[in-house]
């Protein structure tokens, strides 16, 4: 009897903690929503101009391991992670890895920055509307950077709110390539 009362008490504490966790969790938003094999169809259906004004349908990269990075020049953490993406693009291009940047920015600024870091993958100009789309993939606060990794079969393999560190990126793409 006493034992039962204790159990009830402990379960109540656990439930309360869980509730508090959920409640305080609501105050914050954490990254990495479960990707759960979501389709990247809406993303692959996009056509956006690149930094030279040429329209680029994302569907042209279907069948590749596609890393779509939402960024802007006014976002310092975005700029900081991009040289690493350039390195990955170089290293894994022949294995079918393709990066695509979508900038919430204007053409002139994007051109200036991509020249500076010798960007070796397309920098599409998405404006804020394209970043709006990232919300569909779990970027509820629409913060930058935000990265979506699409597997060859068109399903979302990973989404990352905030910087995607090299070791994590390596981990994510290795089984996909």
């Amino acid at each position: 009897m006493k034992r039962r009362a204790l159990w009830v008490g402990f379960i109540a504490v656990a439930a309360l903690s869980l509730g508090a966790g959920l409640y305080f969790g609501e105050q914050y938003w954490r990254g990495d929503p479960p990707p759960a094999a979501q389709s990247a169809a809406t993303l692959l259906a996009l056509t956006l101009p690149d930094e030279h004004g040429t329209q680029q349908p994302l569907s042209q990269w279907r069948g590749k391991v596609l890393v779509v990075n939402f960024w802007a020049t006014w976002c310092a953490p975005c700029r900081e992670e991009m040289p690493e993406f350039v390195r990955f693009q170089d290293e894994y291009r022949s294995k079918g890895l393709q990066f695509v940047g979508i900038a919430a920015d204007n053409e002139a600024k994007v051109q200036q920055f991509t020249r500076e870091i010798k960007l070796n993958y397309p920098a599409l100009i998405g404006g804020f509307e394209a970043i709006d789309l990232s919300k569909t993939f779990g970027n509820r606060l629409m913060v930058l950077p935000f990265t979506v990794v699409v597997a060859r079969n068109g399903t979302i393999a990973h989404t990352q709110i905030g910087p995607l560190k090299s070791d994590r990126l390596q981990q994510v793409i290795a089984p996909l390539l």
């Binding site: 966790g21 959920l22 305080f24 938003w29 954490r30 990254g31 606060l141 709110i161």
Partner: peptide, 10 residues
């Protein structure tokens, strides 16, 4: 579980 590695305010 609710804290995670990246927690952002609205």
């Amino acid at each position: 579980a609710s804290a995670g590695d990246l927690k952002l305010l609205e």
